[in-house]
Simulated assay, not measured.
Amino acid sequence: MQVTKVTAGFQNQTAERKLFTDEELQREFDYYMAQKLLEKLREADQISEGELDKITAKNRQSFSPYLARIMP
């Protein structure tokens, strides 16, 4: 186990903030809702796991969610 000591200098560091436009927020919300619908379809066995993955990839292209580049 590694222990890191937090010092006063470390506390002053801040991460760069991303300010979202209304359009970007709407795309994030639309992507989230589309994914929730897909999850419900998968739970009801209306689509397969492979179809879920394919549709998710297309949704990421269509909606361009901010965190898509780090999503599995």
Rank of each mutant, 00 (worst) to 15 (best):
T4W: 02
Q2Y: 10
E24I: 01
D45H: 11
L19I: 08
I55L: 10
Q13R: 00
A68R: 14
Q46A: 11
L67N: 15
F63G: 04
Q2M: 10
M71A: 14
M71P: 08
A44W: 01
E39T: 08
Q46W: 02
K58N: 11
M71V: 08
K36I: 07
E51C: 04
K58G: 07
K36G: 13
L52D: 05
A15F: 02
A15P: 07
S64A: 14
E16T: 11
L52F: 15
M33C: 08
I47D: 04
R60Y: 04
I55T: 13
A15Y: 00
V6K: 01
V6D: 01
L25S: 11
E39S: 13
E39H: 13
K58T: 08
Q46F: 02
P72H: 09
R17Q: 13
Y32I: 06
G50P: 05
F29P: 12
E49Y: 02
V3H: 06
K5G: 06
S62W: 14
K18P: 06
R69F: 07
E16G: 05
G50Q: 14
A44F: 07
S62I: 11
M33P: 09
F63L: 04
Y66M: 12
V3T: 11
K58L: 11
E23V: 12
G9Q: 11
Q2P: 10
T4K: 13
L38N: 12
F63Q: 04
T21A: 00
Q61D: 11
E16R: 03
Q13M: 02
M71W: 11
Q26V: 06
T14M: 00
S62H: 15
E39V: 11
L19C: 04
Q2E: 13
S62M: 14
L25N: 15
R69G: 06
Q13I: 04
T7G: 00
D45M: 03
D30C: 05
L67P: 06
S64P: 01
G9H: 03
I55D: 06
Q35R: 15
A44Y: 07
Q26A: 12
S62V: 11
A44P: 05
E28Y: 03
R42T: 09
F63Y: 15
K5L: 07
R60E: 12
Q26E: 13
